[in-house]
Design a protein around this nucleic acid. Structure first.
Lengths: 115, 115
DNA sequence: ACTATAGGTAGGGAAAATCCTACGCGTCAA
DNA sequence: TTGACGCGTAGGATTTTCCCTACCTATAGT
């Protein structure tokens, strides 16, 4: 019985990732912290809209900001993504065939259990 | 430049997973295929609404249906989730510290590259 | 003090998502 | 064939999301 009280943190996590712009922002920040304006310049979208996306990411703790002077530097904070990985893990055994890099090593290690 | 044409398959994938009911349906189907009615019984929601969620999952190929008699059996089809895993992978190096089961083995295997 | 820059917030409108009830069609059992 | 069951789809109401244009505050520099 998937009883669902209000909005779990997992809900907000997946909700945050549902938007392509927000995923792109995270990808962008993989290269290092950036200011709001610098981020906004990369998107075909008004700066306040980017600010709102950043707020969603902040609320899910996927990014963190640090004020320095009159700039706010946003940096990616990937820990919450563990929630995605955890949700994903029960499904992983299904695609044992087509794994990416690391996983393959593991598969060899574990030995096949599938004839 | 995160140019975005229409709606990528990744968008639809994350979009499908954004809904808690749909994630719950997938989790439910991990235990094996089920008919629509059986699935619907698990949720506090009208059956047609569940049908719509199933359609979204079908459109993203996350579930597959097989008609047998007058029943339609839905089964989880996790391959598309590779897209999530792939999107996630650049972030994984960040949480090397707190890994889940399998990952830990791998980490030990690979040897630390962090002093 | 005054102006320019950086960026958050408010209010609103359009579009998409979510859920419902009503209905239609195919399949099984009498 | 008739009726009940299993499910998908249509249309509609409500909510949420997404983006915009003001607008406001704070810091930096002159």
């Amino acid at each position: 019985m998937p009883h669902r009280g209000k909005t779990s943190s997992t809900d907000r996590l997946f909700g945050a990732l549902a938007n392509p712009t927000r995923r792109d922002i995270l990808d962008l920040l993989l290269d290092g912290e950036q200011t709001v304006q610098t981020i906004a310049d990369r998107f075909d979208m008004a700066r306040p809209s980017v600010s709102e996306h950043l707020r969603v990411l902040r609320d899910t703790d996927l990014v963190r900001e640090e004020q320095r002077g009159r700039h706010r530097y946003y940096a990616v904070h990937p820990e919450p993504l563990v929630g995605v990985r955890d949700w994903l893990s029960p499904y992983e055994r299904y695609w044992r065939a087509r794994l990416t890099d690391l996983g393959e090593v593991l598969d060899d290690l574990a030995g096949g259990e599938q004839p």
